[in-house]
Amino acid sequence: MKIAVCVKRVPDSETRVKIASDGKSLDETGVKFILNPYDEFAVEEALRRKEQAGSGEVVVVSLGPAAAQETIRTALAMGADRGVLLEADRVPVDGLEVAKALAAELKNGGYDLILFGKMAIDDYNHQVGPMVAELLDLPCVTAVAHLDIAGQRGTAEREIEGGVETVEFPLPAVLTTDKGLNEPRYPALKGIMAAKKKPLELKRAALGAGGLEVLGLTPPPQRKDGKVVGEGPAAVPELLRLLREEAKVL
């Protein structure tokens, strides 16, 4: 089983990001970058599939700056076999440009599965996986929370509003992974040491101009201080009054 996992370098969700002076991008100084958490599920799933099959290859592909090599090595430390970085000074804001570059790289790779996280936690676009599927003319299942593969067919479950949807698909296919699919492993210390020695190929990403432009970034409005109305049951009438008259939510 040959599996590609596409991963993105994103700011750690725990770091407080600042908007840069141009008002359109993030100030990266002091920001810690990590492997996109949804992509961790994809890496883990690929490793488990390969382990189950007893043979195969897990290739990690990323499009990003040179520093994304570190992100790829995190996946190599978890156990992936080799990495490819499509180097770009900036990740285009237009997901289609990213998808085109990735599709070109993946096209002739002979992959049985191409996995993505369902979204990147920096731009929340949910785009690139399905776009790559479309460009490669492959079936696509998004937000997979459970996966079974038998021979050349797969069954995936996705959590949808109020229930679970079960989808069958033929391989090769593109899947995007959701929380709950698995419990990603920690990169073991030996894995971290081994990752240094695994092949990591660098290529220049071929990127078009794209059709999107960021006009501005604004932080969410500051939350106003809360108000303590009182304590215990005695406070309920006043709370109801405020919810009705001031907040107008009742």
């Binding site: 090595r73 920690y186 990169p187 073991a188 210390l189 040491m193």
Partner: peptide, 10 residues
Amino acid sequence: SEEERAVRDT
């Protein structure tokens, strides 16, 4: 080094 940080973070 990158490995030292990776070990620490793990």
